[in-house]
Design a protein around this nucleic acid. Structure first.
Length: 271
DNA sequence: AAAAGCCCCTGGATGC
DNA sequence: TGCATCCAGGGGCTTT
């Protein structure tokens, strides 16, 4: 579910509130994607110094080490003083002096992993091969173009892969390619210079606007304060199969690329 | 090194 | 109403 905008919106919704909080207890529900890699006792007594983001991972800086959190397909976080008793899909609780941080994740593709540091093998296994951060100064056009040049697969798959640029999931891949006017099946290495310039700009534009709208709440996404996002209302193609393209009025198409749905407009995306 | 498939898991929508 | 099937915002792992 959550792509970069949803993860960033989540981060912004609790980062300042939790900063400085002391960890009082930890509760584990059903197993997530990986084991925590630490005992609750190792976390209790530490403080959450800051919450950062890398791609779709949240990094909670502790006094000693970091907590990597990933929301998978169905995860969401909540943070507040008063929370109900854990439900069947609440699989991680971090009780702090400022409130309870809770991961709700029905499908359990998400994860909470402790690592001794960001540079540790445990963390680098997950963060090591990630591409450029699209909303940071890191996202240089030249580096982006160089990344595309060495990929022979379809641009849609390359965007989803996260090794060239991070954070672009299925919704935003479809939306950015529409905005850039590029066919989702075009081999990344064959994108023209003007095409790559448009795509680079579209990624920044779409993700920035999505963050401003609070992300996309297709089913049940909400930030750590329980607030929904509204970017889905502005989607040009995602989820709009058969509906008229908002630009040219021809029907939006749906196709499969690597087990994922791709929505696109054959008339507007010809590059 | 890169690319393509395979899974992990649950719930909701759809169809018979 | 019941049951089977398909689909969903991700991504690491294994195999080519």
């Amino acid at each position: 579910m959550p792509e970069l905008p949803e993860v960033e919106v989540t981060r912004l919704s609790f980062a300042s509130a939790i900063a400085g909080a002391g960890v009082e207890s930890v509760r584990l529900g059903k197993p997530l994607r990986w084991p925590l890699g630490a005992t609750p006792a190792q976390l209790v007594g530490q403080h959450v110094r800051a919450v950062r983001r890398r791609g779709k991972y949240l990094l909670l800086d502790l006094d000693q080490g970091i907590l990597l959190m990933h929301l998978g397909m169905s995860g969401s976080l909540s943070f507040s003083k008063q929370q109900p008793a854990p439900g069947a899909h609440d699989h991680f609780d971090l009780q702090t002096s400022r409130g309870l941080l809770r991961l709700h994740d029905p499908r359990r593709f998400g994860a909470v992993v402790y690592a001794p540091s960001e540079d540790s093998p445990e963390a680098q296994k997950l963060l090591g091969k990630l591409g450029l951060e699209p909303l940071s100064a890191d996202f240089a056009l030249d580096a982006f173009r160089a990344g595309l040049k060495r990929r022979g697969s379809a641009i849609k798959q390359v965007l989803l892969g996260g090794q060239v640029v991070v954070g672009v999931g299925n919704i935003y891949a479809c939306e950015t390619l529409f905005l850039a006017g590029i066919r989702p099946t075009l081999k990344a290495s064959r994108i023209t210079k003007p095409g790559s310039i448009r795509l680079h700009a579209a990624i920044f534009d779409v993700l920035t606007r999505a963050v401003a709208k609070g992300g996309s709440s297709l089913r049940d996404f909400s930030n750590a304060k329980g607030e929904n996002g509204y970017f889905q209302l502005e989607a040009m193609v995602y989820g709009r199969e058969g509906l008229p393209c908002k630009v040219c009025a021809k029907p939006v198409r749906l196709m499969r690329q690597g087990q994922r749905s791709t929505y696109w407009c054959a008339h507007c995306q010809k590059a």
